[in-house]
Simulated scan of single mutants.
Amino acid sequence: MAEKPADSRKNLKNRTKLVHAGRKPSEQSGFVNTPIYRGSTVLFPTLDDLLNRRMPFTYGTQGSPTTEALQTAWTELSGAKGTVIVPTGLAAIAIALLAVVKAGDHILVSDSVYRPNRNFCDTILKRMGVETTYYEPLIGAGIEALIRPNTSVIFLETPGSQTFEVQDIPAIVAVARAKGICTILDNTWATPLFFQAHAHGVDISLEAGTKYLSGHSDLLLGLVTANEVWYPALHATYDAFAMCPGPEDVFLALRGMRTLELRLNEAQRQGLAMAQWLGGRKEVLKVLHPALPSCPGHEIWKRDFLGSSGLFSILLAPCSQQALAAFLDGLELFGMGFSWGGFESLVIPFDCKTYRTATPWAPQGPALRFSIGLEDIEDLKADLAAGFERMHATP
């Protein structure tokens, strides 16, 4: 099989790109997958080569053929100038922000972002002299009123973590571009397959490869892509921190990438089916799923997104803590854990009212976030139905 450059794949579908991007069997004795390169030291053949750094990789923190394979593939898939890979999703958030901000800056961050993101802004960035203002996720072009002369970043996450508001990315990007402000997007929920961040004008896009790229709940990883304007600063910041991922994790991410579209499409099908079923239950007051017309920002999702993943939330009718515990503790197929995107189904309760600051959070009853896995949907429904019965039986 002849290997072709990335440019020759421009007109191919993503499903095909995922299979072929980042692979060079001719350089690895014909083996299909890029092997795991472990190591720190790189040897130079001559003094001149060493002094001029005349090797593809100069030290283990600069990457290896394994990391290069994933960087190359993810850059192609994202339509970016380049990619850096870091050990976790939170590390991706940190490196993206640190590539842009400086002491004295002001940044705007969506009120619905991943909670550890807020903690990073409220602790590390605050100590650096960077002020954070949290904004209403559905603000759209109205964000212009919050911009100050020293605003350097608008940080978006769409849909919002836990509460699933869909932001008007093109409207916010237009304001940011006019003001010379960098936009950063956490695109973990959709991945580049369901939302093309750079095509919509976002400067830096990131995600936790821990989730759907992995697909098997067995690694931690973060990926950050940037356009031509911001990639030099991103890469320089990455080099300064030497925040490199483990080679086994990168290898597992490459393996997960080959089946990413197949698994995402199944997650979409399973997630929608479960969301619709839960929406018909009397115990459920509201389903927060961007692909449902009842979800805030649904029309924007329909305009900008190419699909939906298997993560969504529900708001339950009021019930006691004991009843909620009876529902959750007895589930046989849904685990309780703070992640998602794997092959197994998960559920967690959450309450945003202690940390949302720009938008009030006051649901009538408990809120649950579901990650729908690859189990048979009828088995999952039966597990939840039994849980609802336990809930009713518990005062």
Rank of each mutant, 00 (worst) to 15 (best):
T41I: 11
P25D: 01
S112A: 10
I169L: 14
M391S: 05
L221F: 09
L213E: 07
D111C: 07
K24A: 14
A233Y: 14
A267V: 00
D379G: 12
I139G: 01
R369V: 15
G373R: 13
A393H: 08
E3P: 02
E332C: 10
F57S: 12
L50N: 11
L306G: 15
G180T: 03
F251C: 11
H106P: 00
S217I: 02
L234P: 05
I169G: 12
T183Y: 06
E299V: 00
L262Y: 14
V113H: 01
G79W: 05
L125M: 14
I184D: 12
V347E: 02
L315N: 13
K81M: 10
L125I: 12
G82N: 14
I107F: 01
R118L: 08
S8R: 13
A2I: 05
C182K: 09
L98A: 10
E144S: 12
T163Y: 02
N14Q: 08
E228M: 07
S313D: 10
Q364P: 01
H20A: 12
S309K: 00
G365Y: 05
V100I: 12
L18K: 00
G279R: 11
Q268Y: 10
G271N: 10
W189M: 13
A171F: 02
N187Y: 07
G201H: 02
V84I: 13
P296S: 07
E299C: 02
H200F: 07
Y135L: 02
S78Y: 03
P290R: 11
H106F: 08
G215V: 07
F44Q: 09
S40F: 13
A197I: 06
A358S: 02
W74D: 04
E76Q: 11
L156S: 09
E144L: 05
E332K: 06
Q321S: 15
Y37I: 10
R127Q: 14
D105I: 07
Q62D: 15
K81T: 02
V166G: 10
T123Q: 07
G335R: 06
D203M: 01
Q321A: 14
I147M: 08
A240H: 06
T394R: 00
R390G: 13
L138N: 07
P360R: 01
L70H: 00
K17D: 02
P116A: 07
G215S: 13
A141P: 05
A96M: 04
V100F: 06
Q322V: 09
S313L: 09
A145Y: 04
L264E: 01
F251L: 07
A233M: 12
G387A: 11
S205H: 11
P5M: 06
S308A: 08
L374V: 05
L90H: 03
S294Q: 13
